[in-house]
Write a protein that binds this DNA or RNA. Structure first.
Length: 607
RNA sequence: GCGCUUGUAGCUCAAUUGGACAGAGCAUCUGACUACGGAUCAGAAGGUUCGGGGUUCGAAUCCCUGCAAGCGCGCCA
């Protein structure tokens, strides 16, 4: 944490904060009060009449200094006022003993200079990660159907979190785990076959509408092939003999395996298209079957057993996860000799730590950010899973397994998000691929567009359950807050166009006199820009992309207010005011572009 | 029963992780420049932050307790 704060010392605000902290520290020394600098709290008050910065030192340290908080505060305020602190206009004492520091607008002008110089690329970019590598896995819905709402939420969240990591100096690899082995895939294949040849779908199979659709799609593909065989079942068998198989248990009829393999690809195509329509993409799609074929499961099991982390009981092989904080031990191999899902999951998570694997995937492209790692024997610094609440019970066992395999406890992190309740016309929709009634993310995106959908997912904290009423969202699409933000961006582009056609020279990135920017609306807008670097840092640290959403709305609001009250290009605006305002406008555009990019939402030139 | 998460304006959600008078958007009501884009702006109204204790200068936030909701607790995945 201390390290993180230090690494962030780039922004104007954090430099100002450091300066003020030093000034307070020095002033206290002169007053004969010794305070550890870590006990000097500085924050930006919610109300502007409480100053630009405010400190609670007097409150926190009054007892140790044997002085009344307000007395100490007053002496500190007086001492600071004459200390010649840069930008410091005046000080006062308020409330129970806060020392409020009022700065001259000049400090905010420095902020705008930094925004202009940094631009979209460098403003609010941090080096917290210093090239560390982070793996993020999210969505990973079973490839047995289209993406449901939860997948949409984790997609938007995971992708934005990855963007935050990259902006903060981490290299990332984003992964989708394709669960193409096991019972669900088998059932999926059986359901497809049943739909094709008119048999009843198994009770515990997949009954959704899409299964019928896809079955007829597959039937169509088979029919369009050569041959005059009318019997669909026979065609399936023929096709199965030649084509690929899903790697599900041997002994399964070949046509089921064939249909399953086809179905998985069909589902994945659907999932991928849907996510990409929301601007979510993955660097790597890891198939479980490929992992199994590589022998990773045997390898991991061997290592765990050699390390005495396993035991046998009732003909099954158990992993002693309870020794690492889990409620109880977990089965790796069932008494019938088959592995549970847990073993491949361990193998996968172990593999994600591998730097070799990361390098291999990096060569295939898709890995983003600059990895500074050079130690070939090292491993990834952080492996993150984004999970729905229905999987939270699984976290302790994976965490335990990772520790057993030698990965530091803090290098595996599970982010558990609350599930999404999807409604249509005020009624809750059951989210189940098996019962058939569900609303797909695709449907949501089609109805309201990708920006509204993505913004909606990122509007609130991942900790709170989310209810999205697809009809309500459609009906109110025009009033959606995303347009409020995008409109601000488009307005700015419009100002630039107007300036050009009026023959006004564009403002250079530096050198513009910003001193005319002293009005309330101008200062409010500058303050909004000022906090972006810390918003980015906090959003990353708290794994909370929705903080960016909140900020981007605040910035847009500040801009609309400014735009309404402060004419820029009117003929009666003096050139120096005009240029300063143009500068502020461009700075706002930079801020909006950064925020919207982190959210994966388009920043349009016109609407 | 145990564990995780949550409970804030009529509705949907924020709240700088312990700071000052709890803020936005919808919805309701009232206004604004014959417009550098009105998809905008200003104002009004709306609160016992689920209840009850506690900690301290200070609590929506931390502790205890009760209530309510979601999820999890398999040799299923």
């Amino acid at each position: 944490m201390a390290l993180a704060a230090k690494a962030c010392r780039g922004s104007v605000a954090s430099m100002m904060e450091a300066e003020l902290t030093r000034a307070i520290s020095g002033a206290l020394e002169r007053l004969g009060v010794h305070v550890d600098s870590s006990r000097i709290g500085l924050e930006r008050p919610a109300r502007t009449d409480h100053g630009d910065w405010s400190s609670n030192v007097a409150l926190v340290n009054a007892k140790a200094a044997r002085q009344a908080p307000r007395d100490l505060a007053q002496r500190l305020a007086d001492e600071l006022a004459t200390a010649g602190v840069r930008h410091l206009d005046r000080t006062d004492v308020a409330g129970p003993g806060f020392v409020n520091l009022h700065l001259a607008p000049s400090w905010l002008h420095e902020v705008l200079e930094a925004v202009m110089e940094g631009g979209t690329e460098r403003y609010a970019r941090h080096d917290l990660g210093a090239g560390q590598i982070v793996s993020l896995e999210f969505v990973s819905a079973n490839p047995t159907g289209p993406l449901h709402a939860g997948g949409g939420r984790w997609g938007a969240f995971g992708d934005s979190l990855a963007r935050l990591f990259r902006r903060c100096g981490y290299a990332t690899i984003t992964e989708y785990y394709v669960n193409d082995l096991g019972a669900q895939v088998l059932l999926f294949g059986q359901s497809l076959v049943a739909r094709m040849i008119g048999d009843p779908v198994p009770d515990d199979g997949y009954h959704g509408e899409y299964v019928a659709d896809w079955a007829s799609e597959l039937a169509g593909e088979l029919r369009s092939g050569a041959g005059d065989e009318d019997d669909l079942a026979q065609r399936l068998r023929d096709a199965a003999r030649e084509a690929g198989h899903a790697p599900i248990p041997v002994g399964t009829p070949p046509e089921v395996r064939f249909a399953a393999a086809w179905g998985i690809e069909r589902a994945l195509r659907d999932v991928r298209e849907t996510l990409e329509s929301m601007n979510v993409s993955f660097a790597h799609w890891q198939h479980e079957s490929e992992l199994a074929a590589s022998g990773a499961m045997d390898d991991v099991f061997g290592r765990l057993r050699a390390d005495n982390k396993t035991r046998s009981e009732a003909d099954a092989e158990w992993l002693c996860t309870s020794e690492y904080g889990d409620d109880k031990d977990r089965v790796l191999y069932r008494s019938n000799g088959e592995p549970t899902y847990f073993l491949p999951d361990i193998a996968y998570h172990d593999a994600k730590f591998s730097l070799d694997r990361f390098r291999r995937l990096q060569q295939h492209g898709g890995v983003a950010g600059d990895a500074a790692h050079s130690d070939p024997s090292g491993e990834l610094d952080l492996v993150i899973d984004v999970l729905g609440a229905d999987h939270h019970g699984y976290v302790p066992r994976i965490s335990a397994a990772m520790q057993m395999l030698g990965h530091p406890a803090e290098s595996y992190e599970a982010i558990v998000g609350q599930n999404v309740t999807l409604m249509r016309d005020g009624k809750v929709i059951e989210l189940s691929k098996r019962t058939g009634t569900m609303v797909e993310v695709r449907e949501l995106v089609d109805a309201v567009g990708p920006d509204v959908a993505r913004f909606a997912f990122l509007l609130q904290s991942i900790d709170s359950r989310q209810t999205i009423d697809i009809d309500l969202l459609s009906a109110q699409a025009a009033e959606n807050p995303v347009f409020y933000v995008q409109y601000a961006h488009a307005r700015i582009a419009s100002v630039a166009r107007r300036a050009e056609s009026d023959g006004v020279a564009p403002v250079p990135p530096r050198g513009t006199d910003l001193s005319p920017l002293t009005g309330d609306r101008e200062l409010a807008l500058l303050r909004a820009l000022e906090v972006l670097p810390s918003v980015v840092e906090i959003a990353l640290r708290e794994r909370a992309p929705h903080k960016v959403t909140t900020w981007v709305r605040d910035l847009a609001a500040a801009f609309h207010g400014f735009y309404h009250d402060c004419p820029i290009l009117h003929s009666d605006v003096p050139p120096e005011v005009r240029d300063a305002r143009l500068c502020l406008t461009e700075g706002t555009r930079i801020g909006l572009a950064i925020g919207l990019d982190l959210l994966g939402v388009d920043a349009p030139e016109a609407m």
